[in-house]
Structure formats: C-alpha cells, structure tokens
Amino acid sequence: MSKLTHLNDKGEARMVDVTAKVVTEREARAEATISMSAKTLAMIVDGQHPKGDVLAVARIAGIMAAKRTHDLIPLCHALNLTSVKVELEPGADGMSVHIRTLCKLSGQTGVEMEALTAASIAALTVYDMCKAVDKAMVVSKLRLVEKKGGRSGHWQAST
C-alpha cells in the first residue's frame, strides 16, 4: 500500500506540496444517481415542478460546486478549472436521474474531487428542490468513473 500523501511524518494532516510537479492536462469524470418516485420524475421532466427547472438549477449548482471544492473539502487545492460539464438525464427506469460530470484543467494536481463534488451537489440540489413532494429520494452510486493526466496516467473504473 502506498504512503498517504496528506499526512506528514508525524501523522498530522497537511496539504500536499505540488510546487515541483509538472503542469499537465488533467481531467476527471464522475457520476451519481438520485432515485425518486415515478411521479416526481414525471413532474421534473414535464416541467411541472413548482420550483422551476430542476435539472437546470442542479446543473448550475454542480458547476458552482466544482469551482468551490477547495472551500468545502479540507486540504484540496484551489484549482483554475478550464471546463466543468454537468449532465443530468432521466433514468430509463422512469424513477431516477443520472448525473455525469467532467472537469478539466492544465495544472499540477488532479480534478477528481471537483468532478465528485459537482456530481454530489447536483444530486443534492435535485433532492432539495423536490423534497417537498418526495422525501424518500435516495442519492447513490457516487463514484469516480475516469481520470486522465498526471503521474498516475489514465485510470478508468470497471463497470
């Protein structure tokens, strides 16, 4: 097992020093699912939700969250993201929304946490907007799907 990079020799939490790392193009993809009743999904898809366009608001929230990851997760670097994409699509099961995110930059550290944060906050925004009509929604399957760039190269999750 490799050494944990966020701990110093005394076992104390620290921010990793990336000063000497080479600037490379990096990207990360993440996903999440929010399950709900068929009635709730129909309300979202048909544009009948009283709070407005749920998917558009969740998309914006995901983008904003990616840009603020360093404010939310201790020891994350503030990154100069060059692209953040958040896609929300009704699930084929008629009872879920599938969220996919992509974050990119040219930098010295990866963007996995930004992609994961975007997916989770988009899902939480759907929950927040719909909780008045469906308190039983479940956010699940949050995961990193792929990362490219940096010393560790290309990694892809198994399906």
Rank of each mutant, 00 (worst) to 15 (best):
V18S: 09
A118Q: 11
N8G: 05
A122D: 07
L72G: 02
V139Q: 01
M113R: 08
V86S: 03
V86L: 09
V54S: 04
G153Q: 06
V139A: 11
A78Y: 08
T125N: 10
T117L: 09
A38I: 03
V23T: 13
Q108G: 01
E25H: 15
D46Q: 14
T40Q: 09
L7V: 13
K147N: 06
R100P: 00
I63F: 03
E89Q: 15
A157G: 00
I44A: 01
L41N: 04
A78P: 03
L102N: 04
W155Q: 06
T101W: 04
T69M: 10
G149I: 09
T101G: 04
Q108D: 06
E25P: 09
D9L: 09
G110C: 11
A123H: 05
D134K: 08
V57H: 06
R29W: 14
H154R: 14
A28R: 10
R68I: 00
S83A: 15
G62D: 08
M95C: 15
A30K: 06
V139P: 03
K51L: 14
T19G: 07
L4A: 12
Q48A: 11
T69K: 08
H70T: 08
S35I: 00
K21T: 09
K51C: 08
T19M: 01
K148S: 11
S120T: 15
T40P: 07
A65M: 10
A58P: 05
V138H: 06
K39W: 08
D9Q: 14
R26Y: 01
L105C: 12
L124A: 05
M1F: 13
S37M: 00
R68T: 07
K147P: 09
A157Y: 02
D17R: 10
L124P: 01
L7G: 02
M137C: 10
K21I: 06
M1D: 14
A92G: 12
E27C: 12
K135N: 11
M43F: 00
V126N: 00
G11E: 01
L116F: 05
M43G: 03
V45C: 11
S37I: 08
I60M: 14
I60P: 01
H98T: 11
P74L: 10
S96C: 12
K51P: 00
A65D: 07
S120G: 10
T159E: 14
G47C: 11
K141D: 15
C103M: 08
E89G: 00
S106K: 15
M36V: 11
E146L: 06
T117C: 14
M95P: 00
M1Y: 08
A122I: 03
L41A: 03
V22E: 15
V111D: 02
A157C: 06
T24F: 07
K10Y: 03
H49C: 14
A118K: 05
G52N: 11
D46K: 12
V84N: 06
A66Q: 06
A28G: 12
R59D: 00
C103I: 04
R59L: 05
T40Y: 07
A13P: 14
V22D: 14
T159C: 08
G62Q: 05
G94Q: 09
E87H: 07
T109C: 12
P90V: 09
M129E: 04
M95W: 00
L41S: 11
E89F: 02
S158D: 15
T40M: 09
T82Q: 13
L79G: 04
A118C: 07
G149Q: 05
E146C: 04
P74K: 08
M95S: 15
